[in-house]
């Protein structure tokens, strides 16, 4: 092994442990997705709610902001003390960090809906739910999507740290690389797919964001 350079080593590593990397990649992505999906399920209704009750918005966004400022390793460890080791702790941590971008963007998206369009909807005799479903959500979908995009990128990073509480994922490969003799190639074998996952998720969701953008004529 010593006579190979780091890229040959990397290639050798993937050739011998490809299945393992793939399974950790899957696991990593699943953990991140679960956290973000839960955050979307909770965060989007909260965002809509505070857009309708603006007095609450300062408070809710303030709290979410504080959560965001807490260093993720500290948050992860504190939640570990409460929930124990393993994957659930990481999903809850991801969930908490994913909340802010989703709530904030849902809120902003809802507020940005043109008042004239809302009046038009009311004029047509739409109920509040109809207005929400047929006007507000479709028009703010692009902004909400941007929030989910931020959340997912954050989530992938936090899941990597989740390996420290035993959740597995690509962080496992990175950590093992840091412990191994000449582990440079192993570190890269974990770090590159993690970086790639983040970059690809970002650009794919960016694509949807543009697609849902009501000002984007090609999607109409």
């Amino acid at each position: 092994m010593q006579n190979m350079n780091i890229f040959q080593q990397l290639f050798y590593y993937f050739a011998h442990n490809g299945m393992y990397v793939l399974s950790q990649f899957d696991r990593h992505f699943l953990i991140s997705i679960y956290g973000v999906v839960f955050a979307a399920i909770v965060g989007i209704p909260i965002g809509i709610f505070i857009a309708k009750h603006r007095k609450l918005s300062g408070w809710v966004i303030g709290i979410a902001n504080v959560i965001q400022t807490v260093p993720s390793l500290a948050m992860l460890s504190l939640i570990m003390l409460a929930l124990g080791l393993g994957v659930n702790t990481v999903i809850v941590t991801v969930f908490l960090y994913a909340l802010l971008p989703i709530i904030k963007n849902t809120y902003t998206g809802m507020l940005n809906v043109n008042a004239d369009v809302l009046d038009a909807g009311k004029g047509m005799g739409m109920t509040r739910v109809q207005i929400l479903r047929l006007i507000e959500i479709p028009l703010s979908l692009s902004v909400i999507m941007a929030g989910i995009r931020n959340a997912l990128v954050l989530a992938i990073g936090i899941t990597a740290i989740g390996s420290f509480v035993g959740a597995g994922g690509l962080g496992d490969i990175i950590i093992r690389g840091t412990n191994a003799t000449n582990g440079g190639a192993i570190i890269l074998a974990g770090a590159l797919p993690t970086a790639l996952m983040a970059i690809i998720s970002d650009s794919v969701l960016g694509f949807f964001e543009r697609k849902f953008d009501p000002t984007n004529k090609t999607s109409q």
């Binding site: 780091i6 990128v153 992938i156 990073g157 990597a160 740290i161 962080g171 990175i174 690389g177 840091t178 582990g183 440079g184 190639a185 570190i187 890269l188 974990g190 770090a191 590159l192 993690t194 970086a195 983040a198 970059i199 970002d202």
Partner: peptide
Amino acid sequence: SVLQTIPAMALLAMMIP
């Protein structure tokens, strides 16, 4: 913007080699 999406854990680890 692309660099910023790279998880810190990955970036920190890549510094070791």
